[in-house]
């Protein structure tokens, strides 16, 4: 499949938009008409052709522009990419997983040739042609995680496993929904999830941790998470919150359609073979309310879901200021008709 990469921005003039095909494949996360918190972990198996699940690593029309935005973030704040020294094996594991997936599934765009430890990587969209020695950091311009992270959509963190815990000891995070890698690096699973409301009391994280500790190589899993973002800003980091937070006050009934975005994270987890670490990818998809409403089922369902969202969750996700305005705008697409189960368009 040859992708046509768009030239667009995620800051300043915000020219990001989705093509009709990108709208159709958007991973709409709500399977019913009300909000339900669930860990909803399922096997990360290959999905239908054209869907975001078709391949383990999804590359789409926003690839080139997203990589350009990532480079801008890293130039301004190198702390968005950090790895503790003992994570080097896991970094190579990650590089191997991403390069082999991308080259296998998008041969028009990427190619990997391996001769023992001598690797030849070609990334045509970004104009990269590089020969290096697998396992030798000196042959790459960056550490392995940063090298491949600058060439793959989605944020990544790598968790070391020790003493019955997972430790977030490495990550490249430039499109985060309001959490700081620099603050959280080195934390265990409970610590970095500490700010999430309600779920701790429900025992959600105890069960999730047990599940992840026993994850096996070759059997990745995934789940969807979501929030909302004003303007198509990828870098909604706490580091820059004092600059972008004000955007939340700019939503009016007139501009909801273009300004308010549903932001869905396709979170996938892999056991890495050499390091026994766990790779966590957070692949972000955004869709404008105007785009979302072109799918009748989603236009009906989203306002219903937003109405049932507990206030704590709305606060945590930062929706409180514009939730009602968004519900009001979307309601004209909700004719009250029943919706089918599942997230996909009818």
């Amino acid at each position: 499949m040859v992708l046509a990469f768009k030239n667009e921005t995620f800051r300043d003039d915000f020219t990001f938009s989705n093509s009709p095909a990108a709208i159709r494949r958007f991973p709409f996360p709500f399977v019913e008409d009300k909000y339900m918190y669930s860990v909803n972990i399922e096997p990360h198996e290959l999905g239908p052709k054209g869907s975001v699940y078709e391949f383990p690593i999804d590359i789409d029309e926003h690839y080139v522009s997203e990589m350009r935005d990532r480079a801008l973030v890293l130039d301004a704040d190198p702390g968005r990419c950090q790895a503790l020294p003992h994570m080097i094996t896991a970094q190579w594991d990650m590089l191997e997983l991403l390069m082999t997936s991308m080259a296998r599934d998008y041969p028009e765009h990427f190619s990997l040739t391996r001769d023992g430890n001598q690797w030849h990587w070609i990334n045509r969209p970004l104009g990269i042609d590089h020969k290096f020695t697998f396992g030798d950091v000196a042959t790459l311009p960056y550490q392995p995680m940063e090298y491949i992270g600058r060439q793959c959509q989605g944020d990544f963190s790598i968790q070391d496993q020790r003493d019955g815990q997972l430790w977030m000891d490495a990550g490249i995070i430039t499109t985060q929904a309001d959490w700081s890698l620099d603050f959280d690096v080195g934390m265990n699973f409970f610590e970095w999830h500490a700010p999430v409301p309600l779920a701790h009391q429900a025992g959600v994280f105890d069960r999730a941790l047990k599940f992840l500790l026993n994850m096996q190589h070759g059997r990745p899993v995934r789940r969807l998470n979501w929030t909302m973002t004003i303007n198509s800003r990828l870098d909604t980091s706490p580091e820059n919150y004092h600059k972008w937070g004000i955007d939340r006050t700019t939503v009016t009934p007139e501009n909801v359609g273009d300004k308010v975005h549903l932001r869905v994270e396709l979170q996938a987890l892999w056991r890495l073979p050499r390091s026994n670490a766990i790779l966590f990818s957070i692949r972000c998809y955004m869709i404008k309310m105007r785009e979302l409403a072109t799918v009748p089922k989603w236009g009906r369902r989203l306002p219903r879901v937003l109405r049932t969202l507990p206030d704590e969750i709305a606060d945590y996700k930062g929706l409180t200021r514009y939730r009602q305005t968004t519900i009001d705008w979307l309601s004209k697409y909700d004719d009250g008709a029943p919706t089918s189960l599942g997230g996909g368009p009818d």
């Binding site: 594991d93 190589h217 070759g218 073979p273 050499r274 390091s275 026994n276």
Partner: peptide, 8 residues
């Protein structure tokens, strides 16, 4: 066969 880590 899969790669593995020490102690597996």
């Amino acid at each position: 066969l899969s790669e593995f880590s020490g102690g597996s």
